[in-house]
């Protein structure tokens, strides 16, 4: 009876799958508090460690169980999810712009930067060059990127925080060193002609550079650069340009959601926890530059001094940066249209 056999066989298969998949999926204990932390791509390991420590501290202090769920993805797409109704209690995103977009939609109270220490910036980072071992193309400064025969890997500024920062870093490398905006446009136009592929996210760019061996230099966050060095077992190395951008990821409590879930106090404590010296050290060990001056001093061997400029040094504000560079029909669009012709 093949039909019956098929039916029972598939039922057994389905049941087996269900049991094996469901095994160990613990249900949450009653009366527990649950936080949802929506973050960007590369912070999973760090968040995991911080969460474990915070949960331990919280549970010994209050005696109540706490669970922290994580969501990771591209910074802008995560912000969009929160705006569209993803019930995040706290967000930590790569760009001020993304948190501000959530704030504009009414979910985060205005003036959120002042809610936490250091303008809500627990750490900063910068854009560095990752080059092949021995730096065969002798890439040391921004103008070297547009030399004959150099291929640059950087993600799409339209969809990636990393891509936006790289673009701004390249722009600032001209304008903060006495160049005019027209010169900056010429430089960036040349730069994007040296880019063979615009991955949609930072990780795609790293894979392209490391595993697929495409390109001579990758523009990456400092911490991603260190991860790449570790992952490739020394096949690539980091070059610090003389000037670069100061990347400042921000954290914020999504006040409207937290209020409704009654988690505002826990969410506040959780984010303040990121500024504690203990966590600041953990942050430094993850190759982010901690905001705590004492901790930064302690790890100064890891973080060579680079002249860092803020976004506000090259434009008036993040909002202006967005509309001037990345909006539809703005400078990046013009440049890539030229590059395609």
């Amino acid at each position: 009876m093949p039909f019956r056999t098929t039916l029972s066989l598939s039922l057994v298969l389905l049941a087996g799958l269900a049991v094996s998949a469901g095994w160990g999926c613990n249900t949450k204990p009653a009366g527990s508090v649950e936080l949802l932390h929506v973050s960007y791509d590369v912070t999973r390991e760090l968040c995991h460690e911080v969460n474990n420590r915070f949960i331990k501290q919280y549970e010994t202090k209050t005696g109540k169980p706490l669970a922290i769920k994580q969501s990771h993805g591209g910074s802008s797409s995560q912000a969009r999810s929160v705006i569209d109704g993803l019930k995040a209690d706290v967000v930590s995103l790569a760009l001020w712009l993304d948190v501000n977009a959530i704030s504009k939609s009414g979910l985060i109270e205005p003036g959120w930067e002042q809610r936490l220490p250091n303008e809500s910036i627990p750490y900063h980072s910068t854009v560095v060059f990752v080059v092949r071992k021995g730096n065969p193309k002798q890439i040391k400064d921004w103008p070297d990127l547009v030399k004959e025969g150099v291929e640059v890997i950087t993600p799409n500024p339209k969809t990636s925080g990393n891509g936006k920062l790289s673009f701004l870093a390249a722009w600032g490398s001209v304008t903060t060193r006495g160049g005019s905006e027209d010169e900056a446009k010429v430089y960036l136009s040349a730069l994007y002609q040296h880019v063979p592929v615009l991955e949609s996210g930072g990780r795609g760019a790293t894979t392209t550079f490391l595993n697929k061996q495409i390109g001579d230099v990758q523009l990456a966050w400092e911490n991603e650069g260190y991860l790449a060095v570790k992952e490739s077992e020394g096949e690539v190395e980091i070059v610090y340009p003389p000037v670069s951008i100061r990347a400042e990821p921000v954290v914020a409590v999504v006040t409207a959601v937290a209020k409704r879930k009654g988690t505002t106090a826990v969410a506040d404590d959780y984010l303040k926890f990121y500024f504690e010296p203990e966590i600041q050290k953990l942050i430094a060990e993850s190759y982010f530059r901690p905001s705590d001056a004492a901790v930064l001093e302690e790890f100064k061997d890891k973080f060579p001094p680079v002249q860092l400029f803020r976004v506000t040094d090259i434009t008036t504000s993040w909002d202006e940066a967005q509309s001037k560079f990345f909006s539809e029909g703005a400078i990046f669009d013009t440049l890539s249209r030229q590059a395609a012709k």
Partner: peptide, 9 residues
């Protein structure tokens, strides 16, 4: 998306 390179134009 994985193979195209996603370069505008």
């Amino acid at each position: 998306v994985f193979i195209s390179g996603n370069k505008q134009y």
